[in-house]
Design a protein around this nucleic acid. Structure first.
Lengths: 183, 183
DNA sequence: ACCTGAACACCGTTCAAGT
DNA sequence: ACCTGAACACCGTTCAAGT
């Protein structure tokens, strides 16, 4: 006689999303997620094969949020929208630093499927780049300059690695001017 | 009656350095380090206050290696040396991807002292930048573009986040050209 | 079909006891 | 002064038993 489910993958991801936002990846414990879902630890394995699978699902949820944040960024021209998105990216990370830590983990298990979701998440930026007039032949190169810069800058800002003073907001904007000079 | 030490902080860092290089931060277990040092787990706490302190010591050792690698990079002109250092940075990470994972961790415990060591590690790059003719007023901005780019690019390359094909070596070089245009 | 308690191997850490 | 065994709380995971 089947017992009715007390929880669901979607609910567990929702809980995990809150946990990672509040305390980072380390706070996303099987036991902690289970407790908030009203079940015991082992029950999690009826919904995800292991903790890594759950983390990947949360990672995807965060990427969805990031994409939404980028799409909300507006601007008169494509160029203005492009810069607005870069600032939206930074605002997204600063607003919840812990949450960003679930992205780009060293032991990415998701493989190619996950890579496609990453691509989708930052697609708005590259669409704006294209519309702003970056030449077709330059798109990949500029993308591979801007994306690592954004990721690196925010990782370092979160880690409080910028300690030489100066206006960090101004540095960020000036860096964008360098990278997006051909826009 | 004091018992003679079987190990030392320096020896433990040496072991930790090997462990992180071979298996990443997760492999740097108190028990694993102790075992290779010929002592039991609890003995570690006579040399480091906790695992985090040991990790920070290993982190510093990795930064020393990075600095040495950068200093070995040669070039006729300051400009060539600057580009050579950027490529040396990349080669350093690619040669031992796991090792790089101990840097820029989210929960950096080292504080200001550690930040100074980070600064020292990449100082060769900024010295070359200065010699290559980057204006004094531009140094901080270009530094805060190049350093995040390098860190972000390598983090992403390690995580196999570049899946759009194309020549990654060429993309890296082209990105450097964009960022260092004023050199 | 899903949930549970019990169990396992592992983890970092503390502490009293040994030399 | 340093090392050790025992213990603790926690971790991810497995599995047989329950409904």
């Amino acid at each position: 006689m089947p017992t009715p489910p007390k929880t669901s993958p979607a609910r567990l991801v929702e809980i995990g999303l809150r946990l990672v936002t509040e305390g980072g990846v380390e706070a996303v414990t099987v036991a902690a997620v289970a407790k908030q879902a009203g079940v015991k630890g082992p029950s999690i394995y009826k919904h995800f094969t292991d903790r890594e699978a759950l983390l990947t699902a949360i990672e995807i949820a965060v990427l969805d949020q990031l994409q939404a944040a980028l799409q909300r960024a507006g601007g008169e021209t494509a160029r203005e929208r492009l810069f607005a998105m870069a600032h939206a990216y930074r605002a997204f990370v600063i607003a919840a630093p812990w949450r960003y830590g679930i992205l780009y983990r060293a032991n990415a298990s998701g493989g190619a499927a996950l890579a496609e979701i990453y691509r989708a998440a930052i697609r708005p930026i590259f669409a704006a780049m294209s519309e702003a007039g970056v030449a077709e032949a330059r798109l990949l190169v500029v993308a591979r300059t801007l994306a690592p810069f954004l990721h690196g800058f925010l990782t370092m800002e979160i880690a409080q690695a910028f300690r030489l003073g100066g206006d960090l907001d101004a540095s960020f904007s000036a860096a964008l001017e360098i990278i997006l000079r051909e826009v």
